[in-house]
Amino acid sequence: MIDNQSASQQINAILKMNRDWRGETLSRLRTFIQKADPAVIEEVKWKKPSKPEGVPVWSHDGIICYADTLKNAVRLTFPKGVQVQDPKKLFNTRLESNTVRAIDFHEGDTFNEAALKALILDAVRLNMSK
């Protein structure tokens, strides 16, 4: 049963469920997040009947970001996104929110690695400053 598995194993199972470009994108983002912050902790949260596998979450002294696979995108959401410095304007959705910001990655998208690493590290800095 998936609940008895480690968070890493559960995320591996989520990746296998998404056998198309979304799974590949999520896998690339996961690897990138782990490299950007080697102290990151992987978790799976928010299991519910409509999403029994849950949601991959990356934390360091609090949640940095979490990922959702949508029909036409992989969404990386930063719960404290409003406070995160985004000089390269990577955030492209949830812009109306008072707290979160997110990036939707679509099929064939590449990402600015330096800018994304800066977002991740700024989110870590925010968590550690509390």
Rank of each mutant, 00 (worst) to 15 (best):
E43L: 14
K88T: 07
R94L: 15
N4E: 12
D122F: 01
G23E: 13
T69R: 11
E53M: 15
L76A: 10
V57N: 06
S27P: 03
D104H: 03
N112F: 02
G81L: 06
F111C: 01
W58D: 08
N72Q: 11
E24Y: 00
I11P: 10
T77H: 05
S59V: 06
N98Y: 04
Q85V: 07
T25I: 01
D20R: 12
T110V: 09
I14T: 07
M17P: 00
E42Q: 14
L119W: 07
D86M: 08
M17V: 05
V82L: 14
V57T: 11
R125F: 07
D20M: 12
D61I: 03
I14H: 09
T31D: 14
D3W: 08
K45E: 11
D104C: 06
C65Q: 05
P56K: 10
N112Q: 01
F91W: 06
D68T: 15
V84P: 03
K117L: 03
Q83V: 04
Y66R: 03
C65R: 07
S129F: 00
C65S: 14
D61N: 15
F105G: 10
P52M: 13
I41C: 05
I120F: 06
I33M: 12
E107Q: 14
D61E: 13
P87W: 00
K130E: 08
N112S: 00
Y66H: 11
A102S: 15
N18T: 01
K80F: 02
